[in-house]
Simulated scan of single mutants.
Amino acid sequence: MHSFIPPERFFPYLTWTEIQDMPHKENVVIIQPVGAIEQHGPHLPLIVDAAIGVGVLGKALTKLDANIPAYALPTLYYGKSNEHWHFPGTITLSSETLTATIMEVGESLYRAGFRKLVLMNSHGGQPQIMQMAARDLHVQYDDFLVFPLFTWRAPNITKELLTPKEAKLGMHAGDAETSIMLAILPEQVKLEKAVAEYPPEQPDSTLISWEGQLPVSWTTKDISKSGVIGDPTTATKEKGDRILESVSDGWVQVIKDIYAFRLPESLS
């Protein structure tokens, strides 16, 4: 049931007495992977975001110094995915339900004595929910440090392996996600069904973009017939292995930094 997570790092395998007696719980790093069950084109399974999160985290925890206490919670497989709900198979929570779930998980961990929670989100449609829930948990408990992080934001080499067009316009089920899935769950990738499809390019004269500093809200059907936003046809397992190693290395450093992180002394 621990999937890619090392069993000794899987929170649900602990007993309540082990948690009760755990030393220095205020610095133990608890990591909540958050994914989604949503369409990823005709060539990738619905589980992509959740699989990438747990695959990267499992690799990182395997590499992490055994003296740094860090545990993975079970993945939250469902996320807020209503931008994809026109494609069959997508399962979505409302923003209210996802927020409430994160808040109640956080409150449960706080009651148990933990003070550091990482929201490791791998779905691009919900970073704002992670940020708001993290802030609300910290406002509720001012000694609770909650880190709303996006899996792909850890230092990594992924963009160096993509074409300039893919690095700029690839957003969903493209080269990077397909390559890393070939490394994580190769038997679930149907590369022969992969199609390339980019969103319509905006004129150079406009400041508005599909993603970035000044975005417009969109649903996938507005900009893609296949559900793909990018080019998965250039994906390879070799590229995926390199991406997985690089992103997981970045997460080793992230976990180390969170373990060492302290709030400044109160200014009041």
Rank of each mutant, 00 (worst) to 15 (best):
G124F: 05
M120F: 14
G113R: 10
A134R: 00
K63A: 14
P74V: 00
L93F: 11
V48W: 12
G55T: 03
L109S: 05
F114T: 02
M130L: 15
P42E: 06
G55N: 03
K80N: 10
L149W: 14
L76N: 06
G106K: 05
P127E: 05
N121Y: 02
R135F: 13
H43Q: 07
D136R: 14
G89K: 07
G106M: 03
P148Q: 06
T75D: 06
T92L: 00
A70N: 01
L57Y: 07
E96M: 09
E104R: 12
P148E: 09
G124Y: 06
I52N: 04
P148Y: 02
G89I: 05
M103R: 11
K80S: 14
L149F: 15
D142G: 04
P69H: 02
D65V: 08
A154R: 09
I91K: 02
K63G: 06
L44V: 07
S108Y: 07
H138R: 13
H86L: 06
M103K: 12
G53A: 15
N121T: 00
S81L: 03
V56I: 15
G113Y: 13
L46T: 08
S95V: 11
A154Q: 07
V54R: 10
T151C: 13
M130F: 08
G106E: 04
I68W: 06
G58P: 02
L149R: 11
Q126P: 05
H84Y: 10
D49G: 07
Q126E: 15
L137D: 11
L73F: 00
I102R: 01
G55C: 08
V56Q: 02
A100R: 13
R115C: 02
F114K: 04
L109H: 02
V48K: 11
L98Y: 10
P127R: 09
E107K: 15
A154S: 11
L117T: 04
Y110D: 00
L46A: 11
L145S: 11
K63D: 13
L57R: 00
P45T: 04
A60N: 07
D49M: 09
D142N: 15
Q140K: 15
G58Y: 03
D136W: 11
V139F: 15
V54F: 01
M120Q: 12
T99Y: 14
L46D: 06
G53H: 12
T90W: 01
L64E: 02
M120W: 08
V146F: 01
F147V: 05
I47W: 08
L109M: 09
E107C: 08
L117Q: 04
A70P: 00
G58T: 04
K80C: 13
G125D: 09
